[in-house]
Write a protein that binds this DNA or RNA. Structure first.
Lengths: 242, 242
DNA sequence: CCAAAAGTGTTGCTTCTACACCCATGC
DNA sequence: GCATGGGTGTAGAAGCAACACTTTTGG
């Protein structure tokens, strides 16, 4: 056990990304083979996370995990829930794993999510990290299935009223990319003409004099989200309502 | 220090109630006089809360606090954020107080809010408990001002899309009570006729064949919120949009 | 009969929905 | 010149905002 750690407090990170018309979450392989036939071989997946150091804030701990994964320094992280029930670590595998880390069985985890733009590749994708579609998750350790579902619920709620959608698409995006992002996350179909009308009434979605390149079809116009403009308008007419 | 406690984990409860056309929060007086002239006299207010026992879940801990305050067994509690920064307990008073409880200076607190109906009186209102308007709070300990403001922000957001409003009013309420509840919480004015039209289009707000009694004016019709009906309709057309 | 709050309708305007075809480009 | 996805307009329906007076009751 690392003496710098708080031994009952961790942060877990739900990293989300749109890819192949589906919402994906980043998971880390959890392996622990104790060379003892009586103990289970741990071979499943968990959320990336970290114990909180005594010298770190909660948000700093999440930033550290995000930075290790993405190589970037700035992100919109979102703390959405904390899990600390007495029995949340109870399966044999989970208990073994926590003990092997020198931590307490009654560990509290503060959960964050981070949205990665669809055109970003993570820097440090070693073999232990893999994207999974939310609709086909592998065997997960701890209560991480619950945590992922809670994160997704929170995203679906906030995306109506907060400008979260722009984190999912590239900085310069096409309107169709934006529409598909909404459709994928909320599992709805939107009318293309009506969607474009709604979007073009928003001053904070600004058209650029720039077009896609390298596509073998009509290149589409690019747009950007202006956070500055957004912060100056009080938004009550949301882009979608579903 | 109580050996049954987890010594770095607490739950704080923001109890909210509408009264006198204002949103109120319940606070507990914090006093500690060490009879030592060199130490500060603590004489301010904090949120009711409790350290988490090793045998209790987080939600159970919140329930326990709520039950002690209200005398009731069932409530909609809402976990909205967790505070665990390294420096969140730093003022001399706060440090003294935490030490007097035998707890760690690096304490993590999971914050919940509870809404109390405007016609409910708390059972156990001793002298150490008092309601304060959110707009005129007294001197608060720890980061509890922050926590209260975060709770309020969360309520303001959720009240648009979730049926939170019905927790603020009596079980049998008048439409004007409902309107005033929205107006007070969101600090807006609503047109009475349009509000009533909108509300009466909602199947889950059911009119009773019952009227107010003991009022010296035209008694108004009473309504109830039907959770069962609400859960069967997918609500996308919200009562208000502000 | 008076005071106090409850309750009720209409109109013009805005926004929403549904729907099908032409356009620009790379190959 | 063709395949591919990009981009555009209209009409009818629905919902929204603005607005003032009558009703019911207790005292």
């Amino acid at each position: 056990m690392d003496f710098r750690k708080i031994d009952n407090l961790s942060v877990d990170c739900v990293v989300l990304k749109l890819e192949d018309n589906a919402l994906n979450v980043l998971l880390r392989k959890r392996t622990l083979n104790l060379y003892n036939e009586n103990l289970p071989v741990i071979d499943d997946w968990v959320l990336p996370g970290h114990y909180v150091l005594k010298s770190n804030n909660l948000g700093e701990t999440a930033n550290r995990v995000f930075k290790e994964l993405t190589g970037e320094n700035h992100f919109n992280r979102n703390q959405f829930r904390t899990y600390g029930n007495a029995a949340r670590i109870k399966s044999e595998k989970d208990v073994l794993w926590v003990r092997s880390r020198g931590a307490k069985i009654r560990t509290i985890t503060v959960a964050y999510y981070l949205i990665v733009a669809s055109n970003k590749e993570l820097l440090n994708m070693d073999d232990s990290l893999k994207w999974f579609k939310l609709k086909s998750l592998p065997q997960l350790g701890f209560d991480h299935l619950q945590i992922i579902n809670d994160a997704y619920d929170d995203v679906k709620t906030k995306i109506i009223t907060d400008p979260l959608i722009f984190d999912f698409v590239p900085i310069k995006f096409t309107l169709n990319e934006l529409q598909v992002a909404y459709e994928t996350i909320l599992d709805v179909e939107l009318d293309n003409r009506n969607f474009r009308k709604k979007v073009s009434s928003k001053s904070y979605i600004v058209p650029l004099d720039e077009k896609q390149k390298g596509v073998s079809k009509k290149p589409s116009r690019l747009y950007m989200f202006s956070k500055d403009v957004y912060n100056q308008v009080v938004e009550t007419d949301f882009i979608i309502h579903k």
